[in-house]
């Protein structure tokens, strides 16, 4: 099924040396997401490597007011990833941090060497939907997912990375999917990193409204490009015993008839 016209199968990009940046949260808490990225990219003919030395982008420190503590993490990040042609991460938020905040942290460190390394690495770091649509030139990834799904565009993928409708282009091309529009989709879910605990009441008020909109759609599955936001909305949906499950975009795109998610 192809609704967008134009792009179908990816040209295998064996010329690219591609690294997976799993992100520390996904690595530790949601390993199924980076596993899905590996399955998906390999299916599309991309040989993806996982540099075992990778750790974290430092976003949590930066956004909480401890940018100084993020300096060694930024240094480590460029050391690990500079040798690759492209770095793919299943998180709009972490890619946003690399692209938007790493230059500021290098500046803070007063290290011009680090700043120039950051400038070299950060344009090569892609959020999953960007990599698929812009680098591989594919929207139909050959996925099969016969369920009612609604998509929440996370703030950092929407307003920091400007991924636009790339995730929706990918989802519309999934065979069997019943994709329904989420009312108030572009409004923040209220996760916001440490905001979720520092301002727990406002965070939950925002999340509750988001969960209500999700329930209105009648979807079985809420999909997004960031597991952290999904943990927050899913935590509320779970507490409400809504029966709606949350899934990362990568897991739906990796799903096939032979190996369904």
């Amino acid at each position: 099924m192809l609704l967008d016209g134009g792009m179908t199968a990816a040209q295998p990009r064996t010329d690219l040396r591609v690294a997976l940046f799993a992100t520390c949260f996904n690595d530790t808490m949601w390993p199924e997401t980076p596993k899905a990225v590996v399955r998906l990219l390999e299916r599309l003919g991309v040989r993806v490597e996982f540099p075992m030395d990778q750790t974290c982008c430092g976003q949590m420190m930066t956004n909480t007011g401890y940018a100084g503590d993020a300096v060694p993490l930024v240094r480590h990040f460029v050391d690990v990833f500079e040798k690759y042609d492209a770095v793919v991460a299943p998180s709009g938020s972490c890619v946003g941090s690399v692209r938007d905040q790493h230059p500021m942290i290098a500046h803070l460190a007063g290290d011009p060497g680090l700043a120039s390394e950051v400038e070299e690495v950060r344009p090569k770091v892609y959020e999953l939907s960007e990599f698929l649509v812009d680098v591989l030139g594919v929207t139909d990834v050959g996925a099969w997912f016969p369920h009612r799904v609604t998509y929440h565009p996370t703030c950092h993928s929407l307003r920091m990375l400007r991924v636009g409708d790339r995730p929706l282009q990918l989802l519309r091309a999934v065979e069997g999917i019943d994709l329904v529009e989420l009312p108030g989709a572009e409004e923040c879910c209220g996760f916001g990193g440490t905001f979720a605990v520092k301002n727990a009441d406002v965070s939950v008020a925002m999340g509750t409204d988001k969960a209500e909109h999700v329930a209105e759609t009648g979807a079985e599955v809420l999909v997004a490009g960031d597991n952290s936001c999904l943990a927050h909305i899913g935590g509320i949906l779970g507490r409400q015993r809504s029966g709606i499950r949350t899934m990362h975009l990568a897991e739906i795109l990796a799903s096939t008839k032979e190996n369904p998610a």
Partner: peptide, 9 residues
């Protein structure tokens, strides 16, 4: 400064 989810709207 913490009264925001940094959503960027």
């Amino acid at each position: 400064p913490y009264a925001s989810s940094l959503c960027g709207a």
